[in-house]
Amino acid sequence: MHTSRIFTYISHGLLLILIGIALFQVALLFIMSGKSPAEIATNPMLPSLPIEWENYVTAWNMGIRGYLTNSIILSVSIVFGDILLSVIAAYVFARYQFPGKRLLFGLVLALMMVPGILTLVPRYLLIRDLRLLDTLWAVILPSVLGSNAFQIIVLRTFFQSLPEELFEAARIDGAGHRVLLFNITLPLSTAIISSMAILRFNGAWNDLIWPLLVLNRDELRPISVGLVMLSSGAGAPEIGVQMAGSVIASIPMIVIFIVGMRSFIDGLSVGAIKL
């Protein structure tokens, strides 16, 4: 590929400006988290000293540690269960012909179009009747079972692109579904699976309305709820404390970002998502 030098310079310039604007919004989160209310009123956007560490102490003392633990338990279980089921379903849809496949896959596809809020109340009543309220299952079950249409569709497309010869050879060697799935399909798909997992983790981590509804007891609530608590007191909201809480809440995402970035980028770069 041949690219002229001047074009490259212009590209760098444009990329740095545009991505810079986007990153500045994230930077503001960190900048504001270190400001007192007075400082925010006078100089909201630029870093300033002294850093108001008090904001972090206040946010931390709101019980954020417990919320973080719950969020980790919830998000990890959701990602694990969701991805496991999605991989299996995508594998079946991608590699096999069987009666009713059309209908069943249609069921998966149509879910993408149902507005989420429509099902909120009936689902709450269902969870109540299953006697799952105030248990972590109330969040995990509906998030694992039935909300993975997107993952199934993406993974299925990817699995379809794997060469049939590999599977053929393995079948001749007498491999069953387990071997075909875990020993052949999975090793070739780690990147796409980890991107799906990271996206799902991010979604589970930020989920707010449902956990707030089904988890009453404070010791079960996740960090997204904790952040709302932080901004929920009477009187003047202290934006610095809210931002500090948000910074603390984003630590796990930062860890995942550092650890999983390469897989995430690679996974979405394999071209599985297209028409």
């Binding site: 999605s86 299996i88 909120l120 109340v121 009936p122 689902r123 269902l126 079972l145 579904h177």
Partner: peptide
């Protein structure tokens, strides 16, 4: 193999959607 996914969708998505 498909049953957990399909049953989950019917129970936690389609049933509430049809109720609505």
């Amino acid at each position: 193999l498909l049953s957990p996914t399909i049953i989950g969708m019917i129970v936690f998505q389609y049933y509430p959607a049809l109720t609505a």
